[in-house]
């Protein structure tokens, strides 16, 4: 049993007019929650599709659960929720789920038991109403998302891959999804999800990999990544109006290289040679009404902006989570 759930080595995928993924390597340890972060068009979905053997890489190798990714037997241990969701509209919910279960190597009976469990758990089956007997297109969008989610987890996969799972979810379903991810992790499953929402990634992930324009920018355990970029970030809160003297201090690039106005407080990044003590001195001297001055670890959001840079933002990234 390999220690790695997924081992991607030097993978390249080219399309007619562009390179979607260039020399990407990443390792996902078993039993972790792994976030694949990047702006839209960074190559997240292409990478996921290659891991799932939906498309083949032009170069490099991918091993999934210790087996080559093109080994068909691996697919029965994988659950996949694609970014673009959809089900057979005219089929009954239970029939769709049975079909998806059998495609993942379950017997019809085993699938039926799991369907019962999940319909109850996600309250798609109550004493009043059994949505399992309804057709998919009779369900609300939120309910369809639940059904799709059941289809992903029905066969109790060891590896769960979720592509942009939070997009289009209402807050209740989003919370249910987070709870489920945590529960899967507790049961020793490996979860990979791609997102451009840094907040979710920060709260859920053990490991992250940030990719932009098809190439890896950084990866590693979230704590390590933060430590590497830490020690230089300060949360600053002021009461009342910001005076011009304070603004001058914050604009001094020998002290502060980056200011992110978060409304409730500022997230500051110190210049390389500056110290927190020096900044505090200058702020006090400028008469700033400080209510909070704290050395913080950078948010993934900050790290993301810092590493991917402005170009990533221009490519349509929305990092606000």
């Amino acid at each position: 049993m390999s220690e790695l759930a997924i081992d991607v080595q030097h993978v390249v995928k080219r399309y007619a007019d562009h390179v979607a993924v260039r020399d990407l390597s990443l390792q996902v340890p078993r039993g972790t929650v792994y976030g694949l972060l990047g702006p839209n068009g960074a190559g997240k979905t292409t990478t996921i599709r290659m891991i799932l053997n939906i498309i083949a890489p032009d170069e490099g190798s991918i091993r999934v659960l210790g087996r080559p990714s093109n080994d068909a037997s691996a697919s029965d241990q994988i659950g996949y929720l694609p970014e673009e969701r959809g089900l057979y509209k005219k089929m009954k919910v239970r029939a769709v789920l049975q079909f998806l279960g059998v495609l993942r190597g379950m017997t019809r009976d085993a699938a039926d038991k799991q369907i019962d469990y999940w319909l109850d758990r996600l309250s798609l089956r109550t004493p009043d109403k059994d949505w399992g007997t309804a057709k998919v297109d009779e369900l609300s969008r939120g309910m369809q998302q639940k059904v799709q989610f059941i289809g992903t987890l029905l066969h109790d996969p060891d590896l769960v891959i979720l592509d942009e799972p939070f997009s289009g979810l209402d807050p209740i379903n989003a919370q249910a999804l987070k709870d489920t991810v945590v529960e899967l992790r507790k049961r020793g499953k490996t979860v990979i999800f791609s997102t451009h929402l840094m907040d979710n990634a920060e709260r859920l992930c053990d490991y992250v990999c940030i990719i932009a324009r098809g190439a890896k920018v950084l990866d590693g355990a979230v704590s390590v990544v933060k430590a590497q970029h830490g020690g230089k970030h300060i949360a600053l809160a002021l009461s009342g109006e910001v005076r011009t003297g304070v603004t001058a201090v914050l604009s001094d690039t020998t002290l502060v290289t980056h200011v992110d106005d978060q409304n409730q407080f500022f997230e500051l990044e110190l210049a390389r040679d500056a110290t927190p003590q020096r900044l505090l001195e200058r702020l006090v001297a400028a008469g700033a009404p400080i209510t909070r001055f704290e050395l913080v670890q950078p948010s993934l959001h900050q790290i993301f902006l810092q590493t991917v840079g402005a170009e990533g933002v221009e490519e349509g990234m929305s990092g606000q989570g």
Binding site: Y80, G86, Y88, L100
Partner: peptide
Amino acid sequence: TRVAEVVVSS
């Protein structure tokens, strides 16, 4: 309906 993607992953 994009079902194809789930199906061809299996």
